[in-house]
């Protein structure tokens, strides 16, 4: 029970700190401006307009959420070590795993606040601009965007415990980009490099990198497609397992660090 409380306290501190930073407000403002800005495409007919509105808004939500998550997690642990704020916390009966999980929880709390603001802006814009029409598919699209961001945050956190924060940030952005085009990239590389060694290496990377594209239900929302429940559950389970694995690696790595 105390372990959960410790995680909660560290999470709350991280969230308060994150939510009070100007960079968070700026990123959030950029996203809201982009969501409202997508309504200026008034010269298209209503159907195209609705699709573009959803497409642009969800893309803004993902990129801003990913930027917030990566920025907070990648600087979280190294920043605490550099600024020595980690000492008073770990001098209490707080384990390093609790510290790592708390930092993750706090980062995701900040992302959740940002995502809630952006989702409300999106729903309001849809309702106002499309004469009262609201697509309720947003209710599952946004949670999956959140899960995708959680995977990225966990990867950034794990990377930040083994390398410097600029390198961790750079690698996280690469993972974010590659993870979103993984299937196409895999097919293309397999066709270009058919030797067994290359195939094994490509296949290895394919399985280690997260399939972030699986969490993208933007097209389903835009084109009003129905996504099978089984697929949704499988994707959610994959996301949770991947996040848990990354957090375990981050905890193990941070336990070995000399402060």
């Amino acid at each position: 029970m105390q372990a959960l409380r410790n995680i909660g306290i560290i999470g709350r501190i991280t969230m308060l700190e994150g939510a009070r930073k100007q960079v968070f407000h700026v990123l959030l403002m950029v996203a809201v401006v982009m969501i409202f800005g997508s309504t200026v495409l008034a010269h298209f007919d209503d159907k195209v307009q609705a699709k573009m509105l959803a497409d642009l808004s969800l893309a803004s939500m993902f990129f801003v959420s990913a930027a917030i998550a990566i920025t907070i997690t990648v600087t979280g642990v190294p920043g605490e070590m550099e600024q020595k704020t980690v000492y008073p916390v770990l001098a209490k009966a707080v384990t390093r795993s609790q510290f790592v999980l708390g930092k993750f929880a706090g980062a995701m709390g900040t992302v959740a606040i940002g995502m809630a603001v952006m989702a409300l802006a999106f729903v309001f814009v849809e309702w106002w601009f499309l004469a009262g029409h609201i697509d309720f598919a947003v209710l599952y699209v946004v949670p999956f965007l959140f899960l995708e961001t959680a995977i990225l945050a966990a990867i950034s956190l794990a990377l930040s415990t083994v390398c410097s924060w600029p390198l961790a940030w750079f690698l996280s952005v690469i993972v974010c980009l590659v993870g979103n085009v993984k299937f196409q990239l895999y097919a293309s590389l397999m066709a270009k490099h058919p030797t067994p060694f290359n195939k094994a290496a490509i296949s290895g990377f394919y399985h280690v990198l997260p399939s972030l594209e699986s969490f993208n239900f933007k097209d389903a929302l835009v084109h009003h497609m129905t996504v099978p429940n089984v697929y949704l559950w499988q994707t959610a389970l994959y996301g949770l397992c991947y996040t848990a694995a990354m957090l375990t690696l981050a905890s193990i790595s941070f336990r070995r660090r000399e402060l």
Binding site: N6, I13, L16, K21, T85, Y87, P88, A91, K92
Partner: peptide, 29 residues
């Protein structure tokens, strides 16, 4: 460390937090 209180030479805390928030967190720990 349950029975220990530690004061580093130059205690650094999250600068965006208030004194009350910092102390409350440690009371919680």
């Amino acid at each position: 460390r349950r029975a220990v209180g530690y004061l580093p030479e130059q205690p650094y805390f999250h600068k965006f937090l208030t004194a009350q928030e910092v102390v409350a967190a440690h009371v919680g720990f």
